[in-house]
Design a protein around this nucleic acid. Structure first.
Length: 419
RNA sequence: GCGGCCGUAGCUCAGCAUGGUUAGAGCACCUGGUUGUGGUCCAGGAUGUCGCCGGUUCGAAUCCGGUCGGUCGCCCCA
């Protein structure tokens, strides 16, 4: 009620309420099962990290680090940051605990809230929920294919029909992306007077981003720009071709998008993104890529890795169909009078202990109101306890689908409703 | 962070241009018709600091300013 409470959830946050909250729970559980079947172990890392984890991991040139982080100083003067993404913290945890000394790759699955201070809009929140997996310690293209297939499968199972875009952005060598970047910067400098001002400023810091620009001026220039995929070294090219052929083997439909670049600096080689309709301009439901240099950037050993992050909020928005209407209780006890309500409380509890969902009226309503409540909960059975039933110790059991009623003694109710 | 639109009951919205009695509708909710049987029908009932603060005015849901929030686009991303 807004009349007494003048507090609202902070901007860009939300309360997850019934009935949709149950759908959410169901989708998350399906994801956990799917990731678990593929051998990805659950991992949880703190909601905040030392700020440097993101500055060095995600990269200071990225938008996320540059202007979207919730950074604060604690009472000990340490600079901490609410995690804006999950990969850098997971890699930090792997290094810190030496998980890479066991069998490789280390396969981990995480889920949780991430925080970025941006202008909220549909499908974009300041506190948002991501699910992700990371396979750390394998450079094989098999891993790329496995990770992508799992994410794709999750989205499809969740009722999203995503388009999968893939690209390779090479690795950081002169023979590969570094050389390409210089060529791109040269191209952009030659055309700098034709670019939108925002994009002109990125030539030095983050030239790849100009491919994402929606400025008409920039878009037309970029049509003729050199593209990363034409400048990959032999190894990166071979890797990308393998990934593609594996995806084809797995019947995962994908599109090559040579203009796909990702926002976080740590990506190398494979980059991918899932997009879906119904989300307005926030059409990316998930994305990921290979990050072969991340571990070293965080002071760890050389450890190639790949993973994805999927935005649950956007998944729930994009999935087909409305909320599933679930049964709240299979058995509803209609009780009339104090003695019956007391008996009902015991009956409901024993049914629940037996694994059967059950409910009774807790508002001391009349019979009509209780019957309505039973229907509202989607109950299959109504157990009626009135004066007659209390006197005879036999409840009236009504099948709410067929309307049939029978008289059963209290001890037989559980067996009767199991059918 | 920038720009457009919006903010009235739990939900969807009317009323606001031409300020004026107790601010409305539908859905949902509760009760009764049916002294103990739901999804239909009928009757009745409860619910609003008209987002918030301030200004103009005899008088503001209505006009003005600010602010908070949402939404769409930009930036960027999940």
């Amino acid at each position: 009620m807004t009349n007494t409470a003048s507090f609202r959830a902070p901007r860009g946050t939300y309360d997850r309420l019934p009935p949709g909250s149950r759908d959410w729970q169901k989708v998350v559980r399906e994801a956990e099962d799917l990731f678990g079947r593929a051998g990805y172990f659950p991992v949880d890392t703190p909601a905040f990290e030392h700020t440097e984890v993101f500055e060095r991991g995600v990269g200071e040139a990225s938008e996320v680090v540059g202007k979207q982080m919730y950074t604060f100083e604690d009472r000990g003067g340490r600079s901490l940051t609410l995690r804006p993404e999950g990969t850098a913290p997971v890699v930090r945890a792997v290094i810190e605990h030496g998980l890479q000394r066991g069998a490789l790759p280390v396969k981990l699955a995480y889920s949780g809230f991430m925080f970025r201070q941006e202008r909220p809009q549909k499908g974009r929140f300041r506190q948002f929920f991501q699910l992700g997996i990371e396979a750390i310690g394998s450079a094989s293209a098999l891993t790329d294919a496995e990770v992508i297939e799992i994410g794709h499968r999750f989205l499809r199972d969740a009722g999203v029909e995503p388009r999968l875009l893939v690209n390779s952005i090479g690795h950081s060598a002169e023979s590969c992306r570094r050389g390409y970047l210089r060529e791109l910067q040269g191209f952009l400098t030659d055309h700098s007077d034709e670019l939108a001002t925002d994009d002109r400023e990125r030539i030095g810091s983050n030239p790849l981003r100009t491919f994402d620009s929606k400025e008409a001026a920039t878009t037309s220039v970029m049509a003729d720009a050199p593209v990363v995929s034409d400048h990959l070294c032999a190894e990166c090219r071979a890797h990308f071709e393998l990934v593609q052929s594996y995806l084809t083997d797995l019947s995962v439909d994908y599109e090559i998008d040579t203009r796909l670049v990702r926002g976080l600096d740590y990506y190398t080689r494979t980059a991918f993104e899932w997009v879906a309709g119904g989300l307005g301009s926030q059409n990316a439901v998930g994305g990921g890529g290979r990050y072969d240099g991340l571990s070293e950037a965080l002071g760890g050993p050389s450890l190639p890795g790949i993973g994805f992050a999927i935005g649950m909020d956007r998944v729930m928005e994009a999935r087909s169909g409305g909320p599933d209407v679930d049964q709240t209780a299979r058995v509803y006890v209609v009780a009339l009078g104090d003695d019956a309500r007391r008996e009902g409380l015991m009956l409901v509890t024993s049914l629940r202990r037996a694994g059967i969902s059950a409910a009774q009226d807790l508002s001391e309503r009349g019979m009509k109101g209780q019957m309505k409540d039973a229907v509202r909960m989607g109950a299959d059975w109504a157990v009626i306890l009135g004066e007659k039933e209390m006197a005879s110790k036999r409840a009236t059991l009504k099948n709410l689908h067929t309307q049939d009623q029978e008289s059963v003694d209290f001890g037989s109710i559980e067996r009767a409703v199991r059918s």
